[in-house]
Simulated assay, not measured.
Amino acid sequence: MTTLFNSSQEIVFVLHGLNVTQRNRNIYFVFILIIYLFTIFINLTLILTIFLENMLQTPMYLFLCNLCINGIIGASSFYPKILYDISFDSHVITYIGCLTQICFIYFYVYCEFTNLTVMAYDRYVAICKPLHYHCIMTIRKVWTLILLTWLFSLLEVTIGIVLTARLPLCGVDIDKLYCSNWAVVKLSCIDITLNNLYGFIFTSTQVSQTILILVSYVNIIKASLRSQAGRKKFMQTCVPHLITLINFTISLVFDVMFARYGSNTSLLALRNIMAVEFLVVPPLLNPIIYGMNLSQIRNRVRKMFNCKVSAVS
């Protein structure tokens, strides 16, 4: 098959996932905008709370702060484009814009998994080796792990984007609400074995990280059962992490499986929900879960808002 485009043509993809009428367009726009603004607000609130409170600048809270920053990246890679598409009848995106969106979405995915792995390691040391925790998890080591999380994610994204950008394309129709790597790869005119190989390596990496987290939690649960204090620490700090991990992993697996093996004739609403769940729910849910479970964060946020109310009155 020969490519439909030459090197001088600007490729514009057509997104087919959105189906809104003029009558309900404004309702969707306002609803999605409120969710996006609320997501940004609660993540920024948690980030500012951690940075403004010296007592919260410990390894666990710094990793949580990194998780919230990544949540903002994930939400911002999806919401602005969908809000723009809702406002217009033609749902298109340029080739560069599509690759940029893919870059941010997949950076968010890689960074989320790696950060959750690092957080599991932190909880393992805190509960299984409490006497050595402060010697092992020094502030320098924490910032090193955060930096490596970002660099490792950036490297994975760069390799994936380079492999996708090299492909000549024979189509412009993307049956999704946003640009995804596999949706673009499927439009290729040439063999995509190399892309599939990288996809397998990426999947293996995420599976390995998940296994490391599960092994950590097996040891954490064993250690927690030995004392009342251990059980309390597990419920406060580990349960939110497990909820975050399970929700993110399941939603991402559904999206990957549905993108590769799902039918295009399936219900549009079901396809859209499965495609955006990992971009919408974790950034919204993570700060709420941690904010409710960690008393230090709750108290600090309450204090911040009480001060603002007092200043206004």
Rank of each mutant, 00 (worst) to 15 (best):
L15S: 09
L15C: 08
H16M: 11
I27A: 06
F29T: 14
V30M: 04
F31S: 12
F31M: 10
I32M: 14
I34C: 10
L37P: 01
T39D: 13
I40E: 11
I40W: 12
I40T: 09
F41D: 05
F41P: 01
L48V: 11
F51N: 13
L52Q: 12
N54A: 14
N54I: 09
Q57N: 14
T58I: 02
P59S: 02
N66F: 12
N66T: 10
L67I: 00
C68P: 06
I69K: 11
S76D: 06
F78P: 00
P80V: 00
Y84V: 02
S87P: 00
D89P: 00
L99G: 00
F104P: 05
N115C: 08
R123A: 05
I136Q: 01
I136N: 00
R140D: 10
R140S: 10
W143M: 04
L145G: 00
L147I: 01
L148V: 01
V162R: 14
R166W: 04
L167C: 13
L169C: 09
C170H: 13
D175Y: 15
K186W: 02
C189D: 00
D191Q: 10
L194I: 08
G199Q: 03
I201N: 00
Q209I: 05
L212W: 07
V218Q: 04
V218D: 02
I221Y: 07
K222N: 10
S224M: 04
R226N: 12
R226V: 10
S227D: 07
K232V: 12
N247M: 14
L252F: 12
M257G: 03
A259L: 11
N264E: 15
A275G: 08
L284R: 03
P287G: 01
N293M: 13
N293H: 12
S295R: 13
R298T: 05
R300I: 04
V301E: 05
R302K: 15
F305E: 06
K308D: 14
V312W: 11
